[in-house]
Each structure stands twice: as structure tokens, then as C-alpha cells.
Lab assay of single mutants.
Amino acid sequence: TFELKGKVGKVVKIAEDHYLVEVEGDKWIAYSDEKLSLGDRVMVVDVDGLKLKVKRIP
């Protein structure tokens, strides 16, 4: 999972307290300090167990 840091993915689902992002064909639970929208491109900035911390990228 640490090899996911720096990888780019996209938001595929928005849940009440987390996001579902697809990175390299796999779906992961993710969270972010900013509000994300469906389809946003994101970069993995940290890995916390099986959850990814992501940030939006242009």
C-alpha cells in the first residue's frame, strides 16, 4: 500500500464520511481535508492502513 503514495486516481463515490477512489484499477476508501466531487482527479498523499489520504489535483 505504501507504493500508492504519489499515485493519481479519481473519486468514484461520495459517502457520508469518506470517499471511494479508484487508483490503478482498484477502489480504496479515502479521506481528504478538502471537499471533493465525483470525477475529481486526486493524488494519494498518505496511506493509513487500508485508507488513503488524498488531495485534489488539477
Rank of each mutant, 00 (worst) to 15 (best):
M43K: 04
Y31D: 14
D46P: 01
E24R: 01
Y31P: 03
L50A: 07
V45E: 15
S37F: 07
F2H: 15
D33K: 05
D48R: 04
I29L: 13
D33P: 09
E24D: 04
K13G: 06
A30K: 00
P58H: 07
D26F: 12
E16F: 12
D17L: 11
E22Q: 13
V44M: 02
K10E: 14
I14Y: 05
Y31K: 14
G6C: 03
H18M: 12
K35Y: 13
K5S: 07
T1G: 15
V12E: 13
K13V: 10
V47A: 04
V23G: 01
P58A: 05
G25K: 06
K53T: 12
V54M: 03
I29F: 10
Y19E: 05
V42Q: 00
K7S: 06
V11L: 07
D46G: 02
V44W: 01
E3P: 15
K7R: 03
G25A: 07
I57D: 14
D48W: 13
H18F: 10
V45F: 07
V54S: 01
Y31G: 14
D46L: 03
I57K: 09
G39W: 11
L20R: 04
P58D: 09
K10F: 09
D17G: 09
I29C: 06
I14T: 13
R56P: 09
V45Y: 15
W28L: 03
K35F: 13
E34Y: 06
G9M: 02
K55P: 00
D46H: 03
K13Q: 13
Y19Q: 07
F2Y: 04
K51G: 13
D46A: 04
K51C: 07
H18T: 13
D26K: 06
S37W: 08
G9E: 00
K35N: 09
I14K: 11
W28T: 02
K27M: 09
L4P: 15
A15P: 10
D46N: 02
V12A: 15
V47P: 03
K35D: 12
L52V: 10
A30N: 01
L36S: 03
K10I: 11
K7V: 03
V8W: 04
L38W: 06
V11A: 06
Y31N: 11
G6D: 08
E3H: 03
V44Y: 02
D40W: 05
A15D: 14
L36D: 01
S37N: 12
I14W: 08
I29Y: 09
T1Q: 15
S37H: 06
G6F: 02
K53C: 06
K53V: 04
L38R: 04
K51H: 10
S32M: 10
G6I: 00
H18K: 12
S37Y: 09
H18Y: 14
K7E: 05
M43C: 12
K10T: 14
R41V: 06
D17P: 14
V42C: 06
R56Y: 11
L52C: 03
R41I: 13
I57M: 13
Y31A: 14
G6L: 01
D48G: 03
R56C: 07
L36Q: 08
S32D: 14
